[in-house]
Amino acid sequence: MSSLVLGLVSIVASYTFVVPAIGLVLGILALKREPASRTMAIWGIVLNAVMLGGAVLVGLAAAAFGLAMLPFAFIG
């Protein structure tokens, strides 16, 4: 349940690295512990994995943009 909640929070609260990573770990642990809430754990894992992947892509894009603009930082 907490993995699903953290997945939903990470959608609303913008891109972060910490919240989806914690939610992903909690979702994997919930799959092993509670077979009754398997569907919620799977949805939590999917949401957190998508948000973590999105955060990584946004971070890489920002780093690439920053490196591309670095030569222009010293003009002026």
Results as ranks from 00 to 15, higher is better:
5 V>E: 14
68 A>W: 10
54 G>P: 06
54 G>F: 04
73 A>Q: 10
35 P>Q: 10
10 S>W: 00
31 L>I: 04
41 A>S: 13
70 L>A: 15
41 A>Q: 01
56 V>R: 06
18 V>C: 09
27 G>F: 03
54 G>Q: 09
33 R>Y: 02
12 V>D: 08
69 M>H: 09
13 A>D: 07
67 L>A: 15
16 T>L: 06
38 R>Q: 13
43 W>S: 15
43 W>V: 15
26 L>M: 11
4 L>A: 12
65 F>Y: 13
49 A>K: 04
66 G>C: 01
24 L>C: 00
18 V>T: 12
40 M>F: 11
13 A>F: 03
6 L>M: 14
50 V>D: 02
20 P>N: 07
46 V>S: 08
62 A>H: 05
12 V>S: 14
41 A>E: 00
76 G>S: 12
61 A>Q: 11
69 M>N: 14
23 G>F: 02
44 G>N: 06
43 W>N: 15
31 L>D: 05
64 A>Y: 03
70 L>T: 12
9 V>N: 09
46 V>W: 02
10 S>R: 05
43 W>Y: 12
15 Y>N: 13
47 L>I: 02
45 I>D: 04
35 P>T: 11
10 S>T: 15
19 V>P: 01
2 S>Q: 11
50 V>A: 14
28 I>G: 11
41 A>P: 01
4 L>E: 08
7 G>Q: 03
42 I>D: 02
18 V>Q: 12
4 L>F: 15
68 A>Q: 08
51 M>R: 13
59 G>L: 03
7 G>H: 02
39 T>S: 12
48 N>H: 01
4 L>Q: 08
26 L>A: 11
5 V>T: 15
66 G>R: 10
1 M>F: 04
69 M>K: 14
28 I>P: 01
